[in-house]
Structures are given as C-alpha cells and as structure tokens.
Design a binder for these strands. Structure first.
Lengths: 177, 177
DNA sequence: GTGATTAATTAACAATTGTTATCGTCAACA
DNA sequence: TGTTGACGATAACAATTGTTAATTAATCAC
C-alpha cells in the first residue's frame, strides 16, 4: 500500500529512524519474531518463504510500502516468511514495541495503522480471488496491466513464483504468440 | 473467523436484529453496495462471484461468522461478490450505517471490529500463500485436515471452485488412491 | 412416489504446466 | 581477462488439469 499523504510521511519520519541496507539484506527472518517495522523510502524488497527447499516469493515491496511481519505485530507469532532487499534500500525503522506504544499514545497513529490494515485486507482478498479464478496466463497479463513496475524491476523467476508457477512456465507464457 | 467470547456475542445480539432466511437467499449482491451486516447464529452461506458466466465460490460462512461485503464497509465500494445462503440461516443483522455509528460511539465495538479485520487479514494471507505454493491436490488435503466441516457440509462443486479447480478435477483428486 | 433437475463420476482428448537438462547471455569479481 | 554464477530461453517428456460428453446417483418439487 502506498502512502499518499505527505503529512503522514513526515510524521512517520519523525518517529522512525533512518537506515540504509545493501541488496540481499534480510530485514525479517522466517520463524523469528520480527522486532522492527520499516517504511521504505527507496529501493525494493521481496517477501519469500521456504517450501520443500524452494524459495517461494509471495510479495514485492517498493517505495512507500512497509516491511514487517504483520503476524508478529497482530499476534506475536513467529514470521511466516523472510523479507529480503533486492535493491539497496533507504528505510525508516521503528521497533514493533515502540510502534505499539505510539499507537496507544497517538490516535492518529492508531488510525493510520487500521487504515493500512484494511487496505491490505482488500489487497490480499483481491489477490486470493485472482489466484482462484484466473489462469497463470491471465494472472501474468493482469500483473502486466496493473503493476508494470514490478515486471520492469524484478527478476523474472521471482515473478514466476509470485504468480504460483515455475520460471519455465512463465518464460513460455511470455513468448506465446 | 469464529467469535469465542460469549460476552461479545451477547453484545452483538443486543444491537443486532434477529432474522431468518431460507436456503438460496441472496444476502449480499455483486455490484450493489451492501447495506447490512449479518452475524450467523446457525446455518451456512457461500460467497461467490461471476467470472465469464461461471459462478466462482471463494468462501464459506458458518455459525459464528459474519456475512458482509467488507469492501462496502471499508470503502463504500459496490460488493465484489454475492453472498448466498446454502442452508436456512438464523442471523442477527444490523445496517452498515448503524454499525458505523456504534463503532463511533462504543470503543469496544470499534475494538471488536479491528480485531476481526486483523484476523481476517491473516486468514486471507494464509489462503493466498496456499494458492501460490500448493498444488490443487495439496490444497484439498489441507482443507480436509484443517476444515473437515466444510467438506462435510458443502456440495463438492462449490469446494472445487473454492480450491480454484473444476469439479471434474476435484472428483479425480478424491478418487486418486 | 414419481418425474425432473442437479450433482458426481468416468472417459477421451486437448491444453497447460511441471520437471529436468542444455545452452547462451550477462554481470560480478578476482 | 577469464572464470564463475545467476538468469532466461528452449526442448523433450511426464503429469496434471481443462473441456466436453455420457452415465449414474442423489435431491427437489409437485
């Protein structure tokens, strides 16, 4: 989810701490409780998890997004996935505990958080429905239409697993007709 | 999401209105703004949408669940789907507007709503990941293990589209030793 | 209960995807 | 510069799913 309001961004920057990381940094690790939340100012990251020894990429994050294990925030669970930078990033970070304190203290932080959660819910629901009703080829075309940015910036084999197919199959889809 | 706290259920019953509907009643209609929220006391419903003339079932709802177009509540959009009872149901209903007023008035209603949204988010995320990383056969086995209730109570062709496959394919999977 | 409708199984075939392996390209790096 | 490793394209074949149609089973309505 992208943050539109520059006022909100300024507020975030005030309470978060600026940090930089090179590509291939693990900011969240699968099976560990995630201690931090990052607002991405520049760069890109991918969310992935291990499945039978294979890395399954389930999401991409760019400027304006947040890097966090949402299940760690919501219910203190260990993260279901790893979040790894795929480009050098500049982020603003805060510890999950501090963030929860800010939520208690400031209604506008709480409000912002719940707006974010609601928008994320709609996004996940939409993507789940797309997985159910569309073929891999249709999902690729949808991605091309709605998020061409992703296809430009991200290696193809990550996109393949994001779509739920192999890189071989994605290569075929791209070269069909 | 099931509601565990009986105190919460009692509160819901106080501000909602009891109603009964036969099977095959449309409680929410695709492309219409949903005006009501229903708490299911007994019975079952399915969430479906039209895709190239075919009905795609994306979710099931049972006792303890809520029937609502979450996108209508969150952003006043027209519903992406239809919600239809598949068994006679007893529900407690409230208009979306009244519910929003109650949220403003009563912190515990607001709190309950956000807890519900957060749990739903995790559930959608989990299901999206399952669609990406598992084969149809694996998804069927997962459903059998985690929600055997669904398989017992729901016609098979609805389950097939819930899993993102045809009813023919599900029949084959079930009879595959 | 009986006929009509809907649901589930099965078969045959087409289309798609997965798997494994090879090859060419490119970028990183010593 | 040369080597290594990562990435993407392609080929061959296996496995799975989709499609259509026919048959049986179950359910619904009167």
């Amino acid at each position: 989810m992208l943050i539109k309001s520059s006022e909100t961004i300024e507020n975030i920057k005030r309470i978060f701490t600026k940090e930089e990381f090179p590509a291939k940094t693990l900011l969240v690790k699968e099976n560990e409780i995630s201690q931090n939340i990052y607002y991405v100012e520049s760069g890109a990251a991918r969310v992935w998890l291990n499945h039978d020894g294979k890395e399954i990429t389930i999401q991409f994050l760019f400027e304006g997004g947040f890097i966090a294990s949402i299940e760690s925030i919501i219910s203190n669970e260990k993260s279901w996935y790893t979040i790894e930078t795929i480009e050098p990033v500049t982020v603003y970070s805060i510890s999950t505990n501090s963030f929860k304190q800010k939520m208690e203290q400031f209604p506008h932080v709480r409000e912002f958080y719940y707006q974010y959660i609601q928008q994320s819910l709609l996004a996940y629901q939409k993507r789940m429905v797309s997985q159910i009703k569309n073929t891999p080829e249709e999902r690729y075309k949808e991605l091309l239409k709605e998020f061409p940015e992703i296809i430009k910036r991200v290696p193809q084999h990550y996109i393949a697993s994001y779509l739920g197919i192999t890189s071989v199959s994605l290569s075929r889809i791209r070269n069909r007709k």
